[in-house]
Structure formats: C-alpha cells, structure tokens
C-alpha cells in the first residue's frame, strides 16, 4: 500500500513519505518474525517423531509456500502497484516449474 506515489513530483510531502516508508518497514519486520516462526515450526514438525511423514511432508511444503509468499509479497514488494507483469511472469514460471516437478515425480521411474 505504501510507496504508490511514484509521481516524481518533488513537492510531495517528505514527512508523509517518510511515515509511509516507516510503516511499511514495520510490516516487513512483522513478516520476518512470522517467517522465522514458520521455519521453526517446520524444523520441529520434522523432529517430532509422533508425526507420520504422510503428514509432515505436505505440512512443511505448505509452510514453505506460505513463507515464500511472505518473501515475494512483502520483501520483494509484489503486492505493490506496478507489479502486475512481474507477477504474471513469475506465476508463469511457477506453472512450468510445477509441471516439471510433477512429471519427474510420476513418469521418470516405473
């Protein structure tokens, strides 16, 4: 939400911009804390013997996807205006990536 004022207009209120940047930085730190938490949970899930791997593997993959979403949308600003085409092409890559991984897990060994 912050930093959508790409007007190039030197008269845009500096204090306003500073405030918006600081607010966004706060969100980034919160994201970071959540990412650490997700990482910890993933390590514990794997360390805890009572979970069968049929649960823990999909679970940690889900945690990874969530963490990557934080990285993309917050750290890399993919949620900001002006990122429509980057998103399109990144998801395009994700699609081909998914097809490749799916193929290698199903039709390489038989």
């Amino acid at each position: 939400m912050a930093n959508q004022t790409n007007t190039g207009n030197p008269n845009v209120d500096l204090a306003y911009r500073r405030k918006k940047n600081a607010e966004e930085m706060k969100h980034q730190v919160i994201s970071f804390v959540l990412m650490i938490a997700l990482t910890l949970v993933a390590f514990f899930a794997v360390g805890y013997d009572q979970f069968s791997h049929w649960f823990s593997v999909p679970f940690i993959l889900l945690l990874a996807v969530v963490q990557v979403a934080f990285q993309l949308y917050y750290f890399m600003h993919m949620s900001h205006k002006g990122h429509e085409l980057p998103s399109l092409f990144l998801y395009g890559g994700v699609l081909v990536a998914f097809l490749t991984v799916w193929a290698f897990m199903t039709v390489v060994w038989w």
């Binding site: 097809l99 290698f104 039709v107 390489v108």
Partner: peptide, 12 residues
Amino acid sequence: GNTIIWEHLFWI
C-alpha cells in the same frame, strides 16, 4: 541415474 531425465528436460 536415469536416462529418461534427459528426455524430459530436452523435450520440456
């Protein structure tokens, strides 16, 4: 190793 991996990568 697996020779089919080349085929998949090549044709993808």
